[in-house]
Simulated assay, not measured.
Amino acid sequence: MRNYRYLTLADREALESRYLKGERPQDIADSLGMHVATIYKELKRGDTGDLDCNMRQGYNAKLAQLRLQQNLKRRGSKAKPEQQKLETVTT
């Protein structure tokens, strides 16, 4: 079984600094010990909508952290099937 974990703000800041230096996502993934798909997903999460100094999509670690926290808060817990039946009957 693999051990999954969320990226911390420190991980995101390290990713941001390496990305701004012009490193490839594969090299960043290798240095941080993550899969390259994780890096691409993270770059998408922290996309600023502007180009950086390397003419690539901009990345901001604090923006990515904020979006993650908003997504986790919005996710919530799902109702059990019995509760769903009761909610539909009472409404």
Rank of each mutant, 00 (worst) to 15 (best):
1 M>Y: 00
3 N>L: 10
3 N>E: 13
4 Y>V: 09
5 R>S: 09
6 Y>Q: 11
6 Y>C: 05
7 L>D: 04
9 L>W: 00
9 L>E: 12
9 L>K: 07
10 A>M: 14
10 A>D: 15
11 D>V: 04
11 D>E: 15
12 R>E: 12
12 R>K: 13
12 R>V: 02
12 R>N: 07
14 A>Q: 15
16 E>T: 02
16 E>C: 07
17 S>H: 04
18 R>S: 15
22 G>P: 01
22 G>I: 06
22 G>D: 10
23 E>L: 13
26 Q>V: 08
26 Q>Y: 06
27 D>A: 10
27 D>E: 12
27 D>P: 00
29 A>M: 02
29 A>G: 00
29 A>T: 00
31 S>V: 02
31 S>Q: 04
32 L>K: 00
32 L>D: 04
32 L>Y: 01
32 L>F: 00
33 G>P: 05
33 G>C: 01
34 M>R: 14
34 M>F: 07
35 H>V: 00
35 H>L: 03
35 H>P: 00
36 V>P: 00
37 A>R: 06
40 Y>I: 02
41 K>P: 03
42 E>G: 09
43 L>K: 08
43 L>D: 08
45 R>L: 14
46 G>K: 13
46 G>I: 14
46 G>R: 12
47 D>E: 15
47 D>K: 14
48 T>A: 15
48 T>D: 13
50 D>T: 11
50 D>C: 10
51 L>Y: 06
51 L>A: 12
53 C>E: 14
54 N>P: 00
55 M>W: 05
56 R>F: 11
56 R>Y: 14
57 Q>V: 03
57 Q>Y: 06
58 G>A: 03
59 Y>F: 15
60 N>W: 05
61 A>F: 08
61 A>V: 08
62 K>C: 10
62 K>Y: 02
64 A>Q: 07
64 A>K: 02
65 Q>F: 12
66 L>T: 07
67 R>Y: 02
67 R>W: 01
68 L>K: 09
68 L>Q: 08
68 L>Y: 06
68 L>R: 12
69 Q>F: 01
69 Q>A: 14
70 Q>T: 05
70 Q>L: 13
71 N>Q: 14
71 N>H: 03
72 L>F: 03
72 L>K: 12
72 L>M: 13
73 K>V: 01
73 K>N: 09
73 K>L: 11
73 K>E: 13
74 R>W: 02
75 R>Y: 04
75 R>E: 12
76 G>R: 08
76 G>L: 03
77 S>H: 02
77 S>Y: 02
78 K>A: 06
79 A>M: 08
79 A>T: 01
80 K>Y: 02
81 P>I: 08
81 P>K: 11
81 P>L: 08
82 E>I: 04
82 E>H: 08
86 L>R: 13
86 L>S: 12
87 E>L: 13
88 T>G: 02
88 T>E: 14
88 T>L: 10
89 V>D: 15
90 T>Y: 07
